[in-house]
């Protein structure tokens, strides 16, 4: 069993030329964890994740963890303005270029290992071909469900 068996195809994507407003609308309509951003050749250049969006809203000294716990402050400054300004930002500013991807032939156990051992929390793993073109997307549950079903059949 490899990545191409467990991935979800027909992934919703955004183009680099889209605005952040497009991205936010898309995320609020569709129930998705992250949106891959592709260029005109369907080549993945990055992903937009809720984590990145929140990082963009929070003041840097909170987002980078220097004050990780802000319970003592009743309201963080300029919160509303920051959300408003988010819509006018370009996709390039918010894009997370350090996404995790695998090839279609990657074994599903290797995909599972990537989820567990990734340096930063991975929301989903992209499946791409040799030319970095997007084929599908795998969520942690996709992997686990398939492994569970597989062990059921073995019995």
């Amino acid at each position: 069993m490899n990545a191409s068996n467990i991935m979800t195809t027909g992934v919703v994507t955004l183009r680099r030329t889209n605005t952040m407003l497009d991205a936010i609308k898309l995320i609020s309509v569709k129930q998705i964890r992250q949106v891959p951003v592709v260029d005109e050749n369907n080549k993945v250049i990055g992903v937009i994740t809720p984590r990145k969006l929140m990082q963009a809203i929070l003041p840097p000294y909170v987002a980078d963890g220097t004050i990780a716990d802000v319970r003592f402050a009743p309201e963080l400054p300029e919160f509303v303005e920051k959300i408003d300004s988010l819509a006018s930002k370009s996709i390039d500013d918010i894009l997370d270029r350090e996404f995790v991807s695998v090839g279609p032939e990657t074994h599903s156990m290797e995909v599972a290992a990537l989820f567990v051992n990734a340096k930063k929390p991975v929301e989903s793993i992209l499946v791409v071909d040799d030319g970095k073109r997007l084929l599908g997307i795998i969520s942690p549950w996709d992997v686990f469900k398939r492994l569970w079903e597989y062990s059921g059949k073995k019995k």
């Binding site: 802000v70 402050a73 400054p77």
Partner: peptide, 16 residues
């Protein structure tokens, strides 16, 4: 300074 300066940023942001 590592521990108090982030609070300074928060304070000056609040005070604009």
């Amino acid at each position: 300074v590592l521990l108090t300066v982030p609070i300074t940023f928060l304070l000056t942001d609040e005070l604009k």
